[in-house]
Design a protein around this nucleic acid. Sequence first.
DNA 1: CCTACCGATCGGTAGG
DNA 2: CCTACCGATCGGTAGG
Lengths: 209, 209
Amino acid sequence: MSSPKLPSPDADSPLSRREQITLVASRLFSERGYHATSMRDLAAELGMQGGSLYAHISGKEELLIEIVNRAARQFDAALFSLKTADIAPELKLREAMSRHVSVVAENMDSATVFFHEWKHLSAGPLASVIAWRDGIEHFYRDLIAEGVAAGVYRPELNIKMTATLVLSSVNWTYTWYRPGGTLSPQDVATSFEQMLVLGLGSAAAGRKD
Amino acid sequence: MSSPKLPSPDADSPLSRREQITLVASRLFSERGYHATSMRDLAAELGMQGGSLYAHISGKEELLIEIVNRAARQFDAALFSLKTADIAPELKLREAMSRHVSVVAENMDSATVFFHEWKHLSAGPLASVIAWRDGIEHFYRDLIAEGVAAGVYRPELNIKMTATLVLSSVNWTYTWYRPGGTLSPQDVATSFEQMLVLGLGSAAAGRKD
DNA sequence: CCTACCGATCGGTAGG
DNA sequence: CCTACCGATCGGTAGG
């Protein structure tokens, strides 16, 4: 019967010590940055001594790798089922953006670490993050190409630039979204998707139609 | 008559030693991050000893402050003249985005530091960056509100969300734009602005007009 | 701008 | 999970 110094956030959420460490590391890495967070800082927040961390982990980078990989897997789990989903093309993009923003919004800490600190990974893990980025980009390109083929998006669109624009909108949320606020992730995604698809311009202002 | 150990990049660009230091610091901070860059790393790239840097600067944070403040001033210089400029509303947003992307594209290093490392500033400089962010956001909100008032943008638009979407597209460029490539900053801005204003949707797909 | 150095702190380990 | 410690490195300074 151990007596944890730091109570778990909820009595009925028995996080393993290892998971607690990863969770606190996400918060500290996102707030202070990976290199600016010391193992002693991390240990202190968990109510232990610096050296004691190494009973649970092999090193500092292992934490970063785990945070980044988990984030990538969450995006994959949320999005890649849409690849083959039987949804109307005009709804697919909205659904993808909604899920994408949700992953960011529900994991602000690890999302911030994911977008900010991946550069500090060593060669192996770094390569897999870059590969992931490539995959997500092609996922969105395919979505848009599908929509163009189905006639719901304009045929003149530059697919690459369009995918970049969509990714800009959903990724950048990690810099400004506040989970406690009035906007749900769905609100954000729906609002962005509507503006993107309908356009900001008024019909009165010389749209060719 | 001094004899610089490190030749300036061009014979006819007599950068002061101080400016050289700031320039190299921008590159290293953007590549490795602020905390992961040591003063000795920086000194070595400049062909001097670690301690010698302090003949030119007062401390490490001074460099970060200067890089961040310069970037903010460049955005201001590029954009704020547009506030009162006598340009048609439908062209103002395009022009603003073009200038915004240009500042990022022509200063990829300091822009990256600006977006990534501002959190590590101490209270005073931090407050002024936050104030700057607020200012730029209101700048874009005003631009869009003007356009709505002039009838070029749809009146149903949520001004705040629209400004956020525009800022997402131009800010996120620091993560993917490559200055040597085929896309000029104007290409990027024009492409984004057209997609945003016209919308991705095809007229055929049930736009109400 | 260099040499030589300061105290502090880093990630990590040994042995319990 | 703790105590005690390792070598390395940090930002910065003194004195020239």
